[in-house]
Design a protein around this nucleic acid. Structure first.
Length: 562
DNA sequence: GTAGGGTTAG
C-alpha cells in the first residue's frame, strides 16, 4: 500500500506536506513571490531553509546566491563558524557574495570564535567587490572593528571605517559611539561626535549614557539622561546599573522607583546593591515589595536576598529563605547554593550548611570559603581545619578570603600554633600576600592568648599602615591582660584613625582604672569629652548594642512574614 | 541585512 506521501506524489500534488506548514503555505499562496524573496523574509530556521531549498530545486529556482545568503543568516544563530564555512564553500563554487551577504559575514567574523584575520580578509574582499559603500555593509564593518580589534585599536580602526564612508546614517553614528561606550574611553571625542550629529535616536543617547557610566562619570551620564528627549528600558537600566556599580545605591533606587516598569535585572541590581552596601534591611524590604506585587525573584536577585539574610544572622529568617527557594523552584545554581551555605553557617545552622555544601555538584574555592568563614564565625575551629584539608585533597586552591576564614577560626579557637603555621604557609606555599584583614586576625589571635609583645610587633610590621580593626583587637587584649604600655601606644594611633569612636577612649580609660591610675583615666575621659561634638552616633558599646536592638526591631516589622 | 543595556556568591 502506498504511504500518504507517495500517494500525494503520484497524484502530482508535488510537495507532499503542501499546506501543512508555514513555508509551503506561503509558497502556494503567493504565486508572484520570487524564491529570493521567500528565502529573505520567511526563512528563519534550519528546517525552513531545508524546505525552501527543496522547493526551489523542484521548481528550478535554484539560484545559489539567495540560498547561501539565507543559509548564512540562519546558521549564524546556531554557530557563526558554520556560516563562515559556508562562505568558503561559496568561494569554491565561484558564487560571489553581494551586499546582503557581507553584513552577515562581518557579523559572523565579529564573533569571539572567529579569528581576527577572517574579518580583515573580508574587508579586503569587499573593497574589491564594489559593495564597500553600501550602508549596511559599511556599518557592519565599523561594528566588526569595534568588536574585534584590541581595546587600544578598536576606536581608531572603527573611526577609520566610519570616516571613509561618503554617506552615513544613524546606524553608522551609533556603531562608532557604541565603541566608545563599551570601553568608556575617549568620551571627549564621543561627545564631540555626538554634538555634531543631526540625526539622533534613543540608541545614540543610550550610547552616551553607557559610555559615561563605564567611564565612572555618573554626573555626565545623569546630565544626558535628564536631557534626552525620550527614554526606553535600556536608558533606565544603564543608569540604575551604573549608579549601583559605583556604590551609589540611593541614587540607583531613586531612578529605580521612577522607572515606568521595572525589569528583573534592575530588581536584582537593587537587591544586591543594598546587600553589598551592608544595608540588608533595605535589601529585604525590596524583596518584600517584589513579593507583594507578585514578582518571584530570579536566581540573581535571590543571591542578594540570601546574602542580606546572612548579614542579619537570624536563624528563623535563614530557614524561611531556604524554604522559599525550594517552594518557588528558584534555580539552585552554584552561586545560589554558595550563598545559602554562607547564610546558614553565619546564622548558626551548621548542619544545614554542611548538607547543602555536600549536595553541591562540585565545590569550588567560593563554596569552601563560604563554609569555612561561616564555621569560623561560630567558633568551630577544628571543623575549619578539617575542611581546609579536605579542600586541599580535592585540589581546590584557597585564596586570600579563605585564609581570612582560616586565621579567624584559629584565633577564635585559640589554635595559635596552627594559626602561625597558616600565616607562614599562605605566603610560602600559596603566594598569597598578607592583607590588612589577615593582620587583624593574627594580631587578634596573639592578643587573645596574651602574646601582646608579638602582637604589637605585628602591628608595627603592617605594610599597609595602621588598621583600626587590628589596633582595636590589640587594645581589647591590653585590657584583658592589663598592659598599659602597649595600650598607650596603640590607643594614640587608634585615636588618630578613629577620632570619633569614643569606645576606644572608654577602653583606654578603663585600662588605667584597672591599674588604679586614676589621673590618667580622668585625663582620657576629659579628652573624650573635649572631642565630644565630633563623636559619631552609636560609638559606645552600649549604644551600639541598643542600635543593633533597634535595627532588629525594624527588621521584625518589615519582614514579619519571614 | 547594519547600531544599544544587564544583574548574582565566599
Amino acid at each position: 500500500m502506498l504511504t500518504r506521501r507517495k500517494e500525494l506524489r503520484r497524484r502530482g500534488v508535488g510537495w507532499p506536506w503542501a499546506g501543512q506548514n508555514r513555508v509551503s503555505r506561503i509558497w502556494t499562496e503567493g504565486s508572484s513571490r520570487s524564491g529570493a524573496e521567500l528565502l529573505q523574509h520567511h526563512c528563519n530556521s534550519l528546517p525552513h531553509l531545508k524546505q525552501i531549498h527543496a522547493l526551489l530545486l523542484r521548481t528550478h529556482h535554484h539560484h545559489l546566491l539567495p540560498i547561501f545568503n539565507c543559509a548564512i543568516r540562519v546558521l549564524f544563530k546556531s554557530n557563526p563558524l558554520s556560516s563562515l564555512r559556508l562562505y568558503l564553500l561559496m568561494t569554491r563554487l565561484s558564487v560571489s557574495p553581494d551586499n546582503f551577504t557581507y553584513p552577515f559575514l562581518l557579523n559572523c567574523s565579529s564573533s569571539p570564535l572567529s579569528p581576527l584575520f577572517v574579518g580583515q580578509e573580508l574587508h579586503s574582499r569587499l573593497c574589491k567587490s564594489g559593495f564597500r559603500h553600501h550602508l549596511p555593509v559599511a556599518n557592519a564593518l565599523i561594528h566588526f572593528y569595534s568588536k574585534c580589534a584590541s581595546d587600544a585599536d578598536s576606536i581608531p580602526l572603527a573611526r577609520l571605517a566610519y570616516d571613509e564612508m561618503p554617506l552615513k546614517d544613524v546606524v553608522s553614528h551609533n556603531s562608532l559611539l557604541g565603541t566608545h561606550a563599551r570601553l568608556g574611553q575617549r568620551m571627549h571625542d564621543a561627545r564631540a561626535l555626538f554634538s555634531g550629529l543631526r540625526e539622533k535616536n534613543v540608541i545614540t543617547w543610550n550610547a552616551m549614557l553607557l559610555g559615561y557610566a563605564n567611564a565612572g562619570d555618573l554626573a555626565s551620564a545623569r546630565e544626558a539622561f535628564d536631557l534626552m528627549p525620550e527614554r526606553d528600558a535600556v536608558s533606565w537600566t544603564v543608569m540604575v546599573v551604573g549608579y549601583s556599580k559605583c556604590g551609589l545605591v540611593d541614587a540607583a533606587k531613586e531612578l529605580f522607583c521612577r522607572m515606568p516598569s521595572q525589569n528583573m535585572v534592575c530588581w536584582s541590581v537593587m537587591v544586591n546593591g543594598y546587600s553589598q552596601a551592608g544595608r540588608p534591611e533595605e535589601s529585604l524590604a525590596l524583596f518584600r515589595e517584589m513579593e507583594s506585587v507578585g514578582i518571584v525573584p530570579d536566581a540573581a536577585s535571590m543571591v542578594g536576598v540570601i546574602s542580606a539574610a546572612s548579614q542579619i544572622g537570624r536563624p528563623e529568617l535563614a530557614n524561611w529563605i531556604g524554604d522559599y527557594v525550594d517552594r518557588k523552584g528558584i534555580e539552585r545554581n552554584e552561586r545560589v547554593l554558595t550563598t545559602l551555605v554562607d547564610m546558614h553557617a553565619k546564622c548558626g545552622n551548621v548542619e544545614e550548611a554542611f548538607s547543602l555544601f555536600n549536595e553541591m555538584p562540585s565545590r569550588d574555592t567560593f563554596a569552601y570559603t563560604a563554609l569555612i568563614g561561616g564555621l569560623a564565625s561560630n567558633g568551630h575551629g577544628a571543623k575549619v581545619l578539617e575542611l581546609f584539608s579536605r579542600m586541599r585533597e580535592e585540589g581546590i586552591e584557597p585564596d586570600h578570603v579563605t585564609f581570612v576564614g582560616v586565621l579567624s577560626a584559629c584565633s577564635h579557637a585559640g589554635l595559635v600554633d596552627e594559626g602561625l603555621e597558616f600565616w607562614e604557609s599562605m605566603i610560602q606555599d600559596y603566594g598569597i600576600e598578607h592583607g590588612a584583614d589577615h593582620y587583624a586576625c593574627i594580631i587578634d589571635m596573639l592578643g587573645r592568648v596574651g602574646r601582646l609583645e608579638e602582637a604589637y610587633e605585628m602591628v608595627k610590621k603592617m605594610p599597609m599602615g595602621p588598621h583600626a580593626g587590628a589596633l582595636g583587637a590589640l587594645l581589647a587584649a591590653c585590657k584583658t591582660y592589663g598592659n598599659v604600655d602597649i595600650a598607650n601606644n596603640v590607643a594614640s594611633r587608634l585615636f588618630e584613625l578613629e577620632p570619633g569612636n569614643t569606645g576606644n577612649f572608654v577602653l583606654l580609660s578603663s585600662i588605667y582604672a584597672s591599674r588604679e591610675q586614676w589621673e590618667d583615666a580622668a585625663r582620657v575621659r576629659k579628652m573624650m569629652k573635649e572631642r565630644g561634638p565630633t563623636k559619631l552616633p552609636g560609638s559606645s558599646w552600649i549604644e551600639n548594642d541598643m542600635q543593633r536592638g533597634h535595627r532588629s526591631q525594624k527588621i521584625d516589622q518589615t519582614t514579619y512574614i519571614l
